[in-house]
Amino acid sequence: MKRKKFLLISAVAIAAVAVPVAIKLRPHRKIRLRPLEEPKILGNFCNEEDIRAIGLDYRKRVPSEAEKQQLIELLLNNDSGKKIGSTDIAQVSDWLDTKTDQEFKADQTMVVAGWVVSVTEARQCALFSLS
């Protein structure tokens, strides 16, 4: 009986320490419901206010891309004029992530509100700031 009680108390004690630690250390990941205006990696570190600030700064720097529809078109097209044919959230997410990776490879990056981001990420933030 004593042994059982000891084990039980130990388990509770370990859980009391381990669960909060695990929660604290758990990587913060968001599920993207609106991928067009939610940059994936950047979204891990930035709150809505930051995303909006990046978007506002981008629109200030690139005033020719201030319209919502225009930004959506640019996000759904790539440089070679190819457009994603799907509206599926997962596929749009992948499309944007691939575009972001390609832009970093092609050095199509910029500093917006202090963050070093790809052009696609900056446009996603700009779209968010218009919503």
Binding site: I41, L42, F104, K105, V111, W115, V116, V117, S118
Partner: peptide
Amino acid sequence: GKEAGLSGIGRV
């Protein structure tokens, strides 16, 4: 920042 993006490990 460019390296962090290029390698996909994070942002700066």
